[in-house]
């Protein structure tokens, strides 16, 4: 398989009849890191969820193509097996299902029947990755996200990502709720994975994450679409000056996804 190629074109998404994404375009190739920034309620998580195929979100127009395959025609699990990964802003808790068992099921599903990783090899790999992310070994047998602190949940998302080695990884506010040490560990986890074989879409509110994971492209979302794209300097500019100058430039008064009349 060659370099990943992920293309989103003119994406329109509604939830409960309300249009939230209004024609969004994005093109991510292997080796690239894209950051999406933007004020609250502008549709960033909606983008992430609808790319993953969350049943709540209805795609009303547009195209999403990964390596030439129509992503929108796939179910959520098929998207994941095709190489899409979403580190969620609020991952679910699943009592009674151990973290290790969950990751093993996921990994074997991704690798496909007949190509499962032998149990011992799996556990060695898991413990290695956990160590790198400074996750206590006991978390392998803890129930999936149950009773995890906010920061532990985020690290657990990154652990899953590094085990599954996706082709396109979307990280939704992976930095929120992390102290500076945890932030460095998480950023390090991302950087370790960086290669031609993976493209990243990183949703964040803060420049501080981008100090550790330097993006190639920065996009700003408002009103359910990308209103400005640039390089890493754009993020610094936003950090320094906020969003108002950009809104003024663009003639936007309410940046959120306002309900259409």
């Amino acid at each position: 398989m060659g370099k990943p190629d992920f293309r989103v074109q003119n994406l329109h998404v509604s939830v409960e009849g309300k249009e939230i994404l209004k024609g969004l375009n994005l093109h991510i190739r292997g080796g690239e890191i894209h950051a999406i920034m933007g004020p609250n309620g502008t549709g960033k998580s909606t983008l992430a969820s609808s790319l993953m195929g969350h049943p709540h979100y209805e795609v009303t127009a547009g195209e999403v193509v990964l390596d030439g395959e129509d992503v929108l025609a796939m179910s959520t699990d098929e998207r994941a097996r095709a190489g899409l990964f979403l580190a969620m802003q609020y991952p679910a808790e699943v009592p009674g299902v151990s973290n290790a068992n969950f990751i093993r099921q996921a990994l074997n599903a991704r690798r496909g029947e007949g190509n499962e990783l032998p149990v011992l090899q799996f556990h060695r790999k898991l413990q290695e990755k956990m160590k790198a992310l400074n996750i206590d070994p006991s978390f392998a047998e803890r129930y999936l996200n149950e009773g995890f602190s906010g920061g532990e949940k985020k690290r657990n998302e990154i652990l899953q990502m590094s085990m599954l080695e996706p082709r396109i990884a979307i990280l939704d506010e992976i930095d929120s709720g992390l102290d500076i040490d945890a932030l460095k560990i998480v950023a390090n986890g991302v950087n370790q994975l960086r290669s031609e074989n993976i493209g990243f879409l990183i949703i964040t509110h803060y420049q501080r994450l981008l100090n550790y994971i330097v993006p190639d492209h920065v996009h700003v979302m408002m009103q359910g679409r990308i209103v400005r794209s640039g390089d890493a300097k754009l993020a610094e500019e936003l950090e320094a000056k906020g969003y108002d100058w950009l809104k003024k430039e663009l003639g936007i008064e309410d940046e959120t996804v306002e309900v259409e009349a």
Binding site: M52, G53, H54, P55, S75, T76, D77, R79, A80, R81, F85, L86, M88, P91, A92, E93, V94, P95, G96, V97, N101, F102, I103, Q105, A106, A109, R110, Y143, L144, Q160, L164
Partner: peptide
Amino acid sequence: IDPTQVYYLMSRGIPKSIAVQMIIWGYLHD
């Protein structure tokens, strides 16, 4: 069954029927 749990497991590549079984077994596990 909590659909957000099913979605979460599916988002990692686990097919729906297996995800449902894992959640049920998890619930009966202890």
